[in-house]
């Protein structure tokens, strides 16, 4: 009975576009959905540092290296903002990391693709961060306060990420024939996996219904994917690159692009662990986590010693 009244109040708040805060009553499903979505988002930021991190020492100039370092540091920050907001839902950082390691929590499939060339680094910034921005701008209006605040912060930092990537692509496209080919090859390989970042089509998405009803998500996967395509095609044209979709066509009636079929079989394979780099990414994370254990323990011991000395002294 009590629950029903609380649910009513909760939904009234949602309908009034008010935010839900950590201490407010919320349905268990709302909490679970948020933990799943926010932690997946956090893990993506953290795992996403790996493919780009590989290129720090191979950056073509000092300028490029400084930019890449700053971008990757931002991504670490994004992961931490998101872990913190997830923790307000009553789950510990340790449990979150455990769920990543056991595979209970997922991260974006895009980071299981290899970054083969410097053009791929550009394509990641332009396309992958570009797709993330479309999603994150929409999520600034999510109904959960701490998640929304993290998104606002992240969005402020993201636009440099996309611009630096687009700049790399533009430069390569204007370079030698070989460089242009490298840029085209990067978009050829990363375009479709980027479209998959938005998740399954609305009709096949198990979680969309409640997430939309409770305003955890404000727009559906397909709506966000469409917005990304409509924005990006023009950007590709300007720098003389082609989006690798022969069925891509402007639909004047609907005022948007029609696009070809996404290979959801590939998506499923990669989600379930069978992408080109899944194992490598997870092994790396585990290795860093385990090898850092002594640092965490030493810092804890040092803190305990300081407290003791404060008490004695």
């Amino acid at each position: 009975m009590e629950n029903e009244k609380q649910l009513e109040q909760f939904e009234a708040k949602i309908n009034a576009d008010s935010k839900i805060e950590p201490k407010d009553w919320m349905p268990e499903d709302y909490r679970k959905h948020l933990i799943r979505q926010i932690s997946q988002h956090a893990h993506s930021e953290i795992i996403g540092m790996q493919p780009e991190g590989n290129w720090i020492t191979r950056s073509p100039s000092l300028r490029a290296k400084l930019i890449l370092l700053a971008k990757i540091q931002d991504e670490a920050g994004h992961g931490l903002y998101l872990y913190s907001s997830c923790e307000t839902l009553g789950i510990s950082r340790e449990e979150l990391i455990e769920q990543l390691h056991t595979g209970k929590a997922k991260y974006s499939t895009i980071f299981n693709y290899p970054v083969l060339t410097w053009a791929d680094v550009g394509a990641i910034g332009w396309l992958v961060d570009g797709a993330a921005i479309v999603n994150q701008i929409s999520l600034q209006r999510t109904s959960y306060g701490p998640y929304s605040r993290a998104m606002v912060r992240i969005c402020k930092e993201e636009s440099f990420h996309q611009r630096q990537g687009y700049e790399i692509m533009g430069k390569l496209a204007k370079g030698t024939a070989e460089q242009k080919e490298m840029a085209q090859d990067a978009i050829n390989r990363l375009w479709w996996p980027t479209l998959m970042m938005f998740g399954p089509h609305d009709a096949d998405s198990a979680h969309t219904g409640k997430a939309m009803k409770w305003k955890i998500k404000r727009e559906t996967n397909d709506e966000l994917r469409q917005r990304f395509i409509d924005k990006t095609v023009q950007q590709a044209e300007i720098i003389g690159l082609t989006v690798p979709d022969p069925e891509l066509k402007w639909n004047a009636e609907k005022n948007k692009y029609d696009h070809g079929k996404i290979d959801w079989e590939e998506f499923k394979r990669v989600v379930n662990g069978d992408g080109p780099c899944n194992k490598k990414r997870m092994d790396n994370h585990l290795k860093a986590h385990n090898e850092g254990a002594w640092v965490r323990e030493a810092a804890t011991a040092y803190a305990a010693k300081q407290v003791k000395e404060e008490v004695v002294g």
């Binding site: 931490l80 903002y81 913190s84 907001s85 923790e87 510990s92 950082r93 340790e94 449990e95 990391i97 605040r149 993290a150 912060r153 254990a293 965490r296 810092a299 804890t300 040092y302 803190a303 300081q306």
Partner: peptide
């Protein structure tokens, strides 16, 4: 239970004369 250190709330003052504002949190041992 958390091996990831205690949680601290962070407040930042953006410029002189205005109040510190909550911006988020961090984990740290001390």
């Amino acid at each position: 239970k958390d091996s990831q250190w205690p949680l601290w709330e962070v407040f930042v003052q953006a410029s002189p004369g205005i109040p510190h504002k909550h911006v988020g949190s961090v984990h740290a041992p001390d």
